[in-house]
Design a binder for these strands. Structure first.
Lengths: 352, 352
DNA sequence: CCTCCTCGTGGAATCGATTACACGGAGGAT
DNA sequence: ATCCTCCGTGTAATCGATTCCACGAGGAGG
C-alpha cells in the first residue's frame, strides 16, 4: 500500500508538501499541487487513517453502544445515528450489549481503546464504574433513550407520558378497567419511567395498579411471555396488557395464542415502541411511537457539539399514540391507503 | 490519558520492558513485571490501539458491509458475525449500504482507510471497481449471502434450491397452479438465483412461469407492494406469490390487505428468509429459512483464515422450508408449544 | 540598493506503541 | 581461571501521517 513518502517521491516534493495538498493548505504552488494530485491518482494513494489519528489525536469516529441490535427500535436508532454522523463527517462503530452489563463494558472499553472521539450510550444498567470513569476522564458522551442518574451527561430521549395518558384514555373509553403492565428492568430508566407514567395515568381515572398487575420483564420476548402467562393464571386476570417494549409485546402475543385465546377479545394488548411489523401482526398492535429517527439525529448533534467543546444540549421529544386494533378499536375500513392509522389524540410539541 | 511512557517512568523501567510485560514476553523478571503491573493499575493505563495498529500493521478489526440493516435477516447476520469475531479477538465495524452502490463504496473506502484486517461483504451490485481493486491489492475478503462473479474470493452462503423445491411441492399439493414470484434486483446473485430455483422447481411439475408472473422488486417493502398490485390487476391473477425476501413479502401483505382481500383465501403468500415476526403476522407466513447464524459464523471463520494466510474455504449450507398458514395449510392446533412448525421436507447437508 | 515581508518549501520532531540490537552480569562448562 | 551462553534490560529505529520552524527567493517599499 502506497504511503505519503511514495507520493512525495513520485511528485518530486517533500512529504510536508503532499500533506499540505491533501489537507487543503493555502501555501502550495499550483504546480506542486498538480504534481502531487497526479501522483496520488496514479498510485491510487489513500491516506492511512490510523497514522493520521495517532498524530492528530482524533479518529472522526463515534461509538454507539446499544442494548440490543435485534430490537427494531434500536436498529432504527442505529441507522439514523449512522446517517447523521456520516453527514457530519464521522463514522460510527456499533457495540451490541445484548442487555448484558459485562458485554456493555467490553464494548465501551474497546471503543475507548480505539480512541473514538465520542460515545453514544443507551445504558443497560445503572452505570458501571468504567463508564463513570470515562465521563470523569473527559470522554465526550451522550446518553440516548436510557440514561444514568448523577452524571453530567446530556440525555436525548423521548417523553412518553402524554402518549401513555392518551393510551389509558383510549383504553378507558373502550370500557377496560383492569389494566396490567409488563415492566422493563428496574436498572434502566425506561424500565422504571414507563411504569410510573402508566400508574399516574391510571390514577387520573381513579384506577388502581395492583402489584400482581405489574409483571417483571427484561425487554426480551421470553419475559413478556412469562409475565403474560402469570397474568392469565390470576383469579381475576387483567383485561389489557401494556408491554413496555415491542419484544415483550411479541412474547405476550405468543402467550395469548398458545392458550388458544384471542387479542383483543380475551386480552387486549398495547406496546411501547412502534415498529413497522406491528401493522402486519394479528391483530395490528396499538403502540406508543417514539420519534426514533429524530432521537438518533439529535443525539449525534449533541455529541458532536460536545466534542467541539460545546455544552451538548439535552433533548426531550414527545412520543405519540398510534391506535390499531389490539385493544378493541374497530378496524379501519379497508381503504386504498395502507398507512397505519395515526391517532387523533393530543400530541404535544417538545421543548428542548 | 496515560501513555506507555508514564507507566515506564512510574515503574522505573524502560518503555520496552512495559511493552514486554503487556504482551506477555518471557524475558521479564518477576520484580519488573510486578512493578509494571502496579503502575498500570494505579494509572488506569490502557494501551492506545491506534498507536499499536500503526506499528504492528494490524487492527484486529473486521469490516462488514451489508445491504440493509433494517432487514431482520441482515441484522441477525451482523449479530452472529460480531459474536464469532469477538470470540476470535476481533472487533467488527458495520457499514450499511442501504442497497445503494455509492453508499457501499463509501463504506468500503472508509473501512480500507482504517486498515481493517479483513472485509466481509454482501454486495449490493455486480461489483464496483473499488472492490475489485481491493481484492487485487490483496485485502482479505469474504462474500456472504451474495457474491460477485469472477473474483477469487471465498463465498459463504446458503443453497435454497432444495427448500424452494419443497415449497413448490407444498404449493402444488395444496392445489395451486398459477404461481408468481417477486424477484430481487438482477444485479445481485440472490436476486437472480431465487428466480432460477423457483423456475426449475416449477418445471418439475410441468408448470410454466410466464413473464407477467415475474415481478421486479428491489428487496424493499414498497417494491413488493407494487409488484403484487400489478399481479392483482392481471386478467388472470396468480394464486400464490413468492417474495424473494422478507421485506417484499411484507409489501405484498400490504397490497393484499389494501384491496380488502385475504391471505391465503384470495392470494397465498410465501417468502424467502424466515424472521421471528412471520410467526405473528396475519396470517403467519410460510418461508424458506436460512441458517443465518451459521452463515455469519462460518463467514468470520473463513475470513480470519484468509487473514492468517489460509485459503479461506467457501461454505454452502442448505436452507429449509418452514410451513405456516399463508399458503392455505390448516393452522396447527393451538398447542402449548409455540415454536414454528418445521417442515419435514428433505434437508441436504452441504459440501464446502 | 538595501531591508523587510510574504510565499513556497523541506527538514525534523512528534504521536504511542513494538521490536531489533547491544550490552552487562550471572552461571555453567571446560 | 577463562570463555560462552543466556537472561534481563535499555537504546533507538520504525510505522505514516501532521506541523513547527527555518530558509531561500522574489517583490514591495523606502
Amino acid at each position: 500500500m502506497a504511503s505519503i513518502k511514495d507520493v512525495a517521491a513520485r511528485a518530486g516534493v517533500s512529504v510536508a508538501t503532499v500533506s499540505r495538498v491533501l489537507n487543503g493548505h493555502p501555501s502550495v504552488s499550483t504546480d506542486a499541487r498538480a504534481r502531487v494530485l497526479g501522483a496520488v491518482e496514479t498510485l491510487g494513494y489513500r491516506p492511512n487513517a490510523v497514522a493520521r489519528s495517532l498524530r492528530t489525536d482524533q479518529t472522526r469516529t463515534l461509538g454507539l453502544v446499544i442494548s440490543d441490535v435485534m430490537n427494531p427500535y434500536f436498529t432504527e436508532l442505529a441507522r439514523s445515528v449512522e446517517e447523521e454522523a456520516r453527514a457530519l463527517g464521522y463514522s460510527v462503530i456499533i457495540g451490541n450489549a445484548d442487555e448484558r452489563p459485562d458485554l456493555q463494558d467490553h464494548h465501551v472499553r474497546t471503543l475507548l481503546d480505539r480512541r473514538i472521539d465520542g460515545l453514544l450510550v443507551s445504558p443497560t444498567d445503572g452505570g458501571s464504574p468504567l463508564m463513570v470513569d470515562a465521563v470523569r476522564a473527559g470522554t465526550p458522551m451522550v446518553f440516548v433513550d436510557r440514561w444514568i442518574k448523577g452524571l453530567d451527561v446530556p440525555v436525548v430521549r423521548s417523553d412518553g407520558r402524554a402518549a401513555v395518558r392518551a393510551l389509558v384514555a383510549h383504553l378507558h373509553g373502550l370500557g377496560h378497567r383492569r389494566l396490567a403492565i409488563i415492566a422493563g428492568p428496574a436498572a434502566t430508566t425506561t424500565g422504571r419511567e414507563r411504569v410510573t407514567a402508566f400508574q399516574e395515568a391510571l390514577a387520573e381515572y381513579g384506577l388502581p395498579l395492583p402489584a400482581e398487575y405489574v409483571g417483571q420483564g427484561d425487554f426480551q420476548a421470553a419475559s413478556g411471555r412469562r409475565a403474560t402467562e402469570r397474568f392469565l393464571d390470576l383469579a381475576e386476570p387483567p383485561e389489557v396488557v401494556f408491554a413496555a417494549d415491542n419484544l415483550m409485546a411479541l412474547g405476550a402475543l405468543d402467550a395469548v395464542r398458545a392458550r388458544g385465546l384471542r387479542v383483543p377479545e380475551d386480552l387486549a394488548l398495547a406496546a411501547f415502541d412502534d415498529i413497522p411489523w406491528f401493522v402486519h401482526t394479528d391483530p395490528p398492535v396499538t403502540a406508543v411511537a417514539q420519534p426514533t429517527g429524530e432521537l438518533g439525529r439529535a443525539a449525534v448533534r449533541a455529541l458532536v457539539d460536545r466534542i467541539g467543546g460545546g455544552p451538548g444540549e439535552s433533548v426531550t421529544l414527545p412520543a405519540r399514540l398510534v391506535v390499531r386494533r389490539s385493544c378493541g378499536e374497530p378496524a379501519p375500513p379497508p381503504a386504498p391507503a395502507p398507512t397505519p392509522t395515526a391517532s387523533p389524540s393530543p400530541v404535544r410539541r417538545s421543548t428542548p
